[in-house]
Nucleic acid binder design. Structure first.
Lengths: 179, 179
DNA sequence: CCCCTATGCGACAATCCGCCACAGGTATAA
DNA sequence: TTATACCTGTGGCGGATTGTCGCATAGGGG
């Protein structure tokens, strides 16, 4: 199914530089050669220069939608496996992405394990039953991200998350979080 | 693409009798001939007797999943348009439904207008939500994803998530929260 | 000064969670 | 077929968590 010895190219399309850097390292550690694009035109530039077996593309990049990129990537290389990854997910966009040819659709936060699994190589490490995030851990990361987007405004974050401010406070002061 | 003058057959698959009756009337009022099935075997029975251009199938029917029904319907009639409709919607199942051949995927409650629109191939790209998910919604999506990876095995999912099976069950019975 | 908002925290009730138990159901191997 | 192991739905109960209200404090305009 998967040939781990051959060099594989993957294209990361996300407007968040930090995210792409972190992901890039993670993929490289697993034997991928990675190219990074921060918007659609950069992505198209990349695929004009070489072929990619896989692409991870963000749904929401500044003003443009990653959805439009899918058919363009597919047009250049019909057998490319594309996984959509986004922090602003919805059922409607997920359906659209798959109809447009995406292989899968994930919500951030997601780690490499989950992304690789989304591509289909779940059989990488049968010995290690690599666990998905625990619900608590996921919650923690999500809260932190939204907190940051709201400039550490606890009240605004609580509103955005649909949770009571008091509850958020308690979660924030109590959690080092395991796993 | 659609011919409104010709008599059209539509198949409703949902284990809720009340829902099917209401929907049935609404479709008939719009010139459809409707057949009702309350489970998979009834549905297969229906398509063995006549052809349907369209089908609306519920995701969660008692014990069985409507997902499995999709390829079966497609096998009998490859050009059938299938819309998945469910009160227990998640991105994971939406992606799976589309990959299995569903035309679209809607969340209950949905009225006829929305369903008919889902059948029409209006290529309008869905809007990207500008708010992050609520914590509860994120949890729901994550649970659904892991559940699917574990072939709907609740015990295994609970183990993978590090949560008690009883707790998982209680969460699963509840409808997903919005946002 | 007033008004609005953010923050921290106490208190209490409602809800939820972890855990045990038990009764079927199902699948696989002997 | 029986035996065995696992999965599932459900009830109950004590303890933990959450939702909600209130109050005091602090900063920023106007």
């Amino acid at each position: 199914m998967s040939n781990t010895t051959e060099q594989r190219h993957i294209l990361l399309v996300d407007d968040d530089p930090q995210f792409t850097v972190v992901m890039s390292r993670a993929f490289q550690r697993r034997g991928y050669s990675v190219s990074i694009a921060h918007n659609s035109s950069e992505a198209l530039n990349c695929i004009a220069q070489q072929n990619f077996q896989r692409a991870v593309v963000d749904l929401k990049m500044d003003k443009e939608s990653g959805l439009q990129l899918i058919p363009q990537l597919k047009a250049a290389q019909a057998d490319m496996d594309i996984v959509m990854l986004t922090g602003y997910s919805s059922i409607a966009t997920a359906v659209e992405a798959v109809k447009l040819g995406a292989l899968n659709y994930l919500c951030k936060p997601a780690n490499i394990e989950e992304i690789l699994k989304a591509f289909g190589d779940s059989e990488t490490q049968p010995a290690i039953p690599d666990q998905p995030h625990s619900v608590d851990r996921l919650e923690w990361e999500h809260i932190q991200k939204v907190l940051q987007e709201n400039n550490n405004n606890v009240s605004a974050t609580a509103r955005a998350l649909g949770m009571h401010r008091r509850t958020l406070q308690r979660k924030l002061q109590k959690k080092p979080v395991k796993r």
